[in-house]
Amino acid sequence: MNTTELERDFQNKIDNEIRIEPKDWMPDNYRQTLIRQISQHAHSEIVGMLPEGNWITRAPSLRRKVALLAKVQDEAGHGLYLYSATETLGIERDETIEDLNSGKAKYSSIFNYPTLTWADIGAIGWLVDGAAIMNQVPLCRCSYGPYARAMVRVCKEESFHQRQGYEIMLTLCRGSEAQKNMAQDALNRWWWPALMMFGPSDSDSPHTAQSMKWKIKRFTNDELRQKFVDITSPQADFLGISIPDDNLKWNEDEGHYDFGEPAWEEFYDVIRGNGPCNAERLNARKKAYNEGSWVREAALAYAKKKSNSENLVQVA
């Protein structure tokens, strides 16, 4: 078959909801798009451990501490499922990690913001994991099998993350005045970055059309952002704190909330590396990678030595 026929067959499979598996023929752009998207997703899970890890030793109770530890461990697991999905596309794990460390690969901009108070852990679980779930649920039906299967596992686990975050917010909002203020302050700082997690507006998102045609994406950035606002606004009302957007109001005719435009300049600036914590996050990753290199080498040397001595025993 020539390339045109292969491409036609490929698109037919996608149109008929037949999943693409690693050894199937796929257009090079499809492969490259997935490698970029899945590895960025993996990097986001891994870098995402850093802002939360900051609070593990200072969690206010043992109950909160075990929950946060379990959540951060889950993020590591999610990163690993996703790295393993990336590898099915023919790229080595080391190469993927090298791209993160060199700054060539991106990760979600949200993790370039600092976690200043305990309420930030609540806000991250509620808003950041909430937005991530909104993005990830449709990815469970992504056309690429290994990515979709990884997402099913991730989504199952992620729902505890969001609930524990909201529970933290609820406890603070039903607590003292100072605690409620802390929750409001966290909402003020995390709201807009959370909305930006869905990516630029559809009109500025050049890859959306192709990704939708390939069924990597099922909804546009703006559709998901609207859904997030619709679901989250009543949750903020229940907490009794206000979303920092003067334009946010229920639109009876549309059946949706109207809301303001995120500051896209800030979004692009953080992507360019100028967020409050970009350098800190990347340095932490590089430090962990470099300082762990002797462990990786020692483990390999040990495995080699052990297998040599087992072979000797067999010969004897």
Partner: peptide, 11 residues
């Protein structure tokens, strides 16, 4: 269920 990297079967 997926894959992972390890130096030997025990790991």
């Amino acid at each position: 269920v997926g894959s992972l990297h390890a130096t030997d079967s025990q790991m």
